[in-house]
Simulated scan of single mutants.
Amino acid sequence: MKKIILALCAIVYFHGQSQIGVAIISPTNTLDVNGETRIRTLADIPSPNASTLLATDNSGVMKKTTFFDAIYSSGLYTRSLSNDNWNNLYVGTKACRLDFVGRVADSGIDFTFSVLYKIGVGFQVVSQNNVVIIPINATTFQIFIYVGAVYTCKLTLLGNMANMNAVKTLGGGWIQGTFRSIPILN
């Protein structure tokens, strides 16, 4: 009887420590499915109680995330993670409209602007509010805030994505906000 109990304990222990693969020989996670997954019934979460979403990373591993983290990591909406820096702006292959909504920290001035960026051509002003934007060259433009602050914005291309950095060249404070990129692929 002791041997049977010991054998059952060993099976339960090793089963609890193992990884299960469905249509895969060498699973890399606790449950590793090679193929599509179907869930026939999911309970609704009434608003506004939904706090997390289910998403996958680049390897296809499921993780939970928030709505805002999901939307801002898409490359279509990019918020400044630190003052004056935006990463992973989606610029597409030919051109992209960048819509910005932000604030100057010291003065508390909210402002918006939109620029069209064409690969190899540079920036063109689409709209502006409380700012004057002057293109300088193919990857740089300036933001003049009417309270006397000036920021030089430099775009660094990384394939279809880009990083933006706004360096203060006059006045005080820093800017934060969100870029929304609308790529033009044709």
Results as ranks from 00 to 15, higher is better:
residue 37 T to N: 01
residue 165 N to E: 10
residue 34 N to S: 11
residue 103 R to L: 13
residue 104 V to K: 14
residue 117 Y to V: 11
residue 94 K to I: 02
residue 36 E to Y: 12
residue 59 S to M: 06
residue 6 L to F: 08
residue 132 V to D: 10
residue 140 T to C: 06
residue 38 R to K: 14
residue 119 I to C: 03
residue 170 L to W: 02
residue 161 M to P: 01
residue 91 V to A: 00
residue 133 I to N: 03
residue 62 M to I: 04
residue 35 G to A: 10
residue 114 S to V: 08
residue 91 V to F: 00
residue 24 I to T: 14
residue 142 Q to R: 14
residue 99 D to S: 11
residue 55 A to H: 00
residue 14 F to S: 06
residue 183 P to N: 01
residue 69 D to L: 01
residue 167 V to I: 12
residue 69 D to F: 04
residue 114 S to D: 05
residue 63 K to Q: 11
residue 103 R to S: 11
residue 85 N to W: 06
residue 93 T to N: 13
residue 155 L to G: 04
residue 99 D to A: 12
residue 116 L to V: 03
residue 111 F to K: 02
residue 129 N to V: 07
residue 161 M to V: 00
residue 83 N to V: 01
residue 129 N to S: 15
residue 177 G to V: 12
residue 119 I to T: 01
residue 66 T to L: 09
residue 169 T to S: 13
residue 55 A to S: 11
residue 10 A to V: 08
residue 76 L to F: 14
residue 4 I to L: 12
residue 65 T to A: 06
residue 146 Y to F: 15
residue 129 N to Q: 14
residue 57 D to H: 08
residue 155 L to P: 05
residue 93 T to L: 11
residue 145 I to A: 10
residue 71 I to W: 02
residue 97 R to Q: 08
residue 149 A to N: 07
residue 24 I to K: 03
residue 92 G to S: 01
residue 6 L to K: 06
residue 47 S to E: 15
residue 133 I to T: 08
residue 98 L to C: 04
